Simulated assay, not measured.
Amino acid sequence: MQIEKTIVLTLQKLLHKREDTSKQEREQFIIKTKELSLELAGITLSELHVIDCIGTYGTKNITSLSKEMDMTRGAISKICSKLLKRKVIDKIHLADNQKEVHFRLTEFGEKIFSLHETLHQAAEEKVIRFLKKYTPAELQFIDRLLKDVINEL
């Protein structure tokens, strides 16, 4: 039973470390936005994820953003309202459906998306370099373990 307790403590350390790293990444993002004269003080992680979703998949409505991000339509609506005020996204209507509101990134939003993508890629490359020290069999186990952890949380 001792190894299980050790694993629990290690997992707790990992989660705390990840939280600290997320804060550092967010601070780095804010610093980079200021260097590029992009004013984003107070932007939330959820707002960044909406920007990323629209930037990655193109024009989206509240329902499709809600499904893609696994959030309520109400939460997405609030986030989009904030992003509209910041002039990060625009409301548009598609030619075949003037009733439904869709969102797209503004030029300002595109700059934020691009910066976020650059930082995200650098973080992903760091993880990939880290994982190169493991064998394919070990990587398959790590993948299974992480999926099991996600399913349990």
Rank of each mutant, 00 (worst) to 15 (best):
L83Y: 02
T118M: 11
N97I: 12
K91T: 14
L83I: 01
E124R: 12
G109Y: 01
H93A: 13
E125R: 13
M71H: 07
T72L: 04
I112N: 00
L94Y: 05
A75S: 13
V101H: 07
T106I: 00
N97M: 10
H102D: 07
C80R: 04
R129M: 14
L119T: 01
A75P: 04
K82G: 03
A122E: 05
H120E: 09
F108T: 05
C80E: 04
E107W: 00
G74Y: 07
A123V: 05
R86I: 05
F113M: 09
S81Y: 02
K91R: 15
I79R: 01
E110Q: 03
S77G: 10
I76M: 10
E107K: 02
K87W: 02
T72H: 10
R86Q: 09
I79M: 00
V88F: 02
K91G: 06
H116N: 15
K126M: 00
T118R: 05
L119R: 01
R73I: 11
V127H: 08
M71K: 10
K99G: 10
I92W: 09
K126S: 00
I92S: 07
G74T: 12
F130H: 14
H93T: 12
K99I: 12
L105Q: 02
A123K: 09
A122L: 05
K82C: 03
L83Q: 00
F130Y: 15
G74S: 11
L83D: 00
L83W: 02
F130A: 06
C80D: 04
S77I: 05
R104L: 13
L84T: 08
L115A: 05
S114I: 12
L119P: 01
G74D: 12
I112Y: 02
K85P: 07
L84M: 08
D96V: 07
A122V: 03
A123W: 04
C80F: 08
K91E: 15
H102E: 10
L105M: 05
R104H: 13
G109Q: 02
D90Y: 11
N97S: 15
I89G: 01
K85F: 08
N97C: 14
R129F: 13
L105H: 05
E100K: 15
A123Q: 07
A75M: 14
K126L: 01
K78Q: 03
H116W: 13
Q121R: 12
K91M: 15
K111M: 03
R73M: 13
K91Y: 08
K126Q: 01
K99R: 15
R73A: 12
H120C: 06
S114E: 12
I89W: 04
H120M: 04
F103C: 03
G109V: 01
V101K: 08
E117Y: 10
E110D: 02
A95T: 11
D90I: 06
N97T: 11
G109H: 00
R86W: 05
H102V: 06
K91N: 14
V101D: 06
R73S: 14
V88H: 02
K85D: 15
F130N: 09
E100L: 15
A122D: 06
A123T: 04
I92L: 15
F108I: 05
K78T: 03
E125G: 07
